[in-house]
Design a protein around this nucleic acid. Structure first.
Lengths: 232, 232
DNA sequence: CAGTGGTCTAGACCACAGC
DNA sequence: CTGTGGTCTAGACCACTGC
């Protein structure tokens, strides 16, 4: 039941910041002072401080000391998976097209390639409980180890497709989330007859050198998906 | 120019994971072995490993060893600020209403309060370059140190409003992002005559005990906002 | 039992802030 | 100059795993 000393130090200082009303920029006791206060070695004190730094409560300036950090009020963590969201999950997909195309201006630009470089296009429909809920297009640069088995393509998430045959942890990604009105093609695919907004999520994948290797655009029925985020 | 030993260890192992094609679940050299390999003390080796753990590359099981972690392919970081997004910024706001109301069923539920508990409502319009771009409603539970000056309300972000007079770092938040068709009231406020989708962002704020203390709903013109995220 | 990681100590030397 | 944090060593003891 006895928790480690460094955790005690961590929690003490954390609650001092919260309860004793320390303001951002104010200084924390020095490491030496904390050693005395807790009768602990410097390594132990530093371990406690390291956690505080790591979790964004304080920062340190060599030669000066530790200071209370300004809280980040606008940072959120979002879990996004085309196939699975907070409301329900994709239980069926339909492969509309797998093809090799030459990119148009916009796509060549997005993927930072010339217009004569071939690109794989995959178009799918996502279903939940038999209803079409999203229209999905992916553009991939050819990569070694790329999935070519249709079964694999049908139920793969975009990062899953691209991570195959790539070094672990080398995949970087960006998301762009917007709301749009469906065009006629999407209306047809998604059985939309009334007014309905689309939540459009664009995923761009990059390799370890930050070169784009894929672009994915998923258009969800607005009544089907909600993206969730959390932060502190 | 000589970087610390623990960083060298960190980067070596990281690139071993990426290039030598280690699979998730495979084991890393033991701390003792790494000490020998780098001629370093255990503390130094552990510091390198700690970074790898912290950044999600490996995990450890006491008594067994360190193992390669499964990469998180669906985690993203999103920066969201009602007043400032990637495309442009709110340069003017209009306060439509500041009032005290009794919550209806849904609101009482969201805020986990009884229906006779009073709630502050703030309704605003956000403008960019003279055009209305978002309709914003906030519901706040009364809190000590709450802003009551109109100027303060007009240009404050939701977390900014609530963080006043609260302990630093005690504010927790969730986001819910969806796409909707505007109702008539919002159409009027936002000068929408054609078909246009709304990107609706719901923010819920919680205190340190995870009790809801505020709900904010911002409806952006779909052609005005894109939310951005990034991950690795 | 030997091997693993988790905690902790008591030193040391360094570069840098600030007086 | 003293005080600060940053790096590093060489030990120690513990709890746990797996044979």
């Amino acid at each position: 039941m006895t928790s480690p000393v460094y955790l005690k130090i961590f929690e003490d200082i954390k609650s001092k910041i919260n309860n004793a009303g320390l303001k951002p920029g104010e200084t924390i006791l020095s490491e030496a002072a904390l050693c005395k206060e807790y009768g602990a070695s410097r390594a132990t004190v530093r371990k406690g401080l390291a956690i505080l730094v790591n979790e964004g409560f304080i920062y340190s300036i060599p030669g000066k000391g530790h200071f209370v950090q300004d809280p980040q009020h606008n940072k959120y963590t979002v879990f996004y998976d085309e196939m699975k969201n907070s409301i329900n999950s994709v239980d069926k997909t339909k492969l509309l097209e797998v093809n090799i195309i030459l990119p148009d201006e916009r796509l060549a630009n997005e993927l930072q390639i010339t217009k004569n470089k071939k690109v794989i296009i995959i178009r799918r429909l996502f279903y939940t409980d038999g209803e079409p809920v999203a229209y999905d297009v992916k553009y991939l640069l050819y990569y070694k180890g790329m999935p070519i088995v249709e079964k694999e393509i049908e139920y793969s998430t975009f990062p899953e497709m691209m991570a195959k045959g790539m070094p672990l942890f080398s995949l970087k990604k960006t998301l762009t989330i917007s709301a749009q009105i469906p065009d006629d093609m999407i209306k047809k695919y998604l059985d939309i007859y009334n007014q309905l907004a689309l939540l459009v999520v664009e995923q761009k994948l990059f390799d370890h050198e930050n070169k784009p290797i894929g672009l994915g655009i998923t258009s969800f029925r607005g009544d089907y998906i909600k993206l969730l985020g959390s932060g502190e």
